[in-house]
Simulated assay, not measured.
Amino acid sequence: MATKPLTGTKVFLMLVAFFGLVIGVNVTMMKLAIATLPGTDVDSPYAAGLAYDREISAAQDQAARNWQVSAHIERRADGAATLQVDARDANGRPMSGLKFGGRLERPTDKRADLQIELSEAGIGVYRGNAATVAPGQWDLVIEGDARGMRVFLSRNRVILN
């Protein structure tokens, strides 16, 4: 059996094919990486530091108020969830006139976050519903506003079955 000689043209074509394949795979992987990248975490570290300082100050103010806020979330059979927040002041009296809002955040995918609008159902009792809540782990975020300022923030991990 006669073998064909290895010529310069064949070596050149093999090199072009090899590097073409490597470059093609790299371009494909780069495009996939860029398409799935959610973006930068922080556009301005300085502004993020200032926001963090404000959060620390707000947390200290919240702790000084000594409010007793409890939340209960329940997933119903139809897939919806009901959130109830009970708010009491430092003396245990129910607080009304606040504006509470809730959010269910997926720990791994922010695109699945759900907003829950709460309305005052009684003195110091706030209720709201979220439609079609998938089972699994969620972060329950509760924010309370008074006169346009956030006065309460709570973040808790919950499991909804």
Rank of each mutant, 00 (worst) to 15 (best):
K4R: 11
K110H: 05
A48E: 07
S70W: 01
I159C: 00
A64G: 13
N129G: 12
Y126A: 03
W138G: 02
R157K: 13
T132V: 13
E55N: 11
R147V: 02
A51I: 03
M30P: 05
V25I: 15
E143R: 03
G49A: 12
S57K: 12
K99H: 12
V151M: 06
W138P: 02
L21C: 11
T108S: 14
H72T: 09
V141Y: 04
L98H: 07
S96M: 04
Y52L: 15
G24F: 10
A112R: 02
S44Q: 05
Q137P: 04
A35N: 08
A134W: 10
L50P: 00
E143A: 05
R65T: 14
M29K: 07
K10W: 05
G122W: 11
A71I: 00
A17Y: 03
H72K: 09
K110V: 02
T36R: 14
R65N: 15
V27T: 15
T132S: 15
V25K: 09
G128C: 06
V42F: 12
A131R: 09
Q60K: 14
V16E: 08
R65M: 15
A47S: 09
G102N: 01
A71F: 00
N129D: 15
V151Q: 07
A48W: 05
A2W: 06
L50D: 09
G101I: 06
M1I: 10
E55R: 12
V151I: 14
L15G: 15
E120Y: 04
L6F: 10
T132A: 15
G128W: 01
D139K: 08
W67D: 09
L15D: 07
V158I: 15
G101T: 04
G124K: 11
I159V: 11
I34E: 08
V11A: 13
F100V: 06
Y46V: 15
N91F: 05
N91D: 13
A71P: 00
P5G: 11
H72M: 09
S44G: 03
A17T: 12
L32I: 06
H72Q: 08
V141P: 00
L114Y: 08
T36N: 14
A130N: 07
A51L: 12
H72P: 00
L104A: 07
R111I: 01
S154N: 13
A134G: 12
I159N: 13
A58G: 11
A112W: 03
S57M: 08
G144I: 08
V16L: 05
N66T: 15
E117T: 12
G148S: 03
G101C: 00
R65L: 14
T7M: 03
A80L: 00
Y52I: 09
P107I: 00
T36G: 09
P5M: 12
M95S: 02
G128T: 03
F152C: 06
I23W: 07
T82P: 00
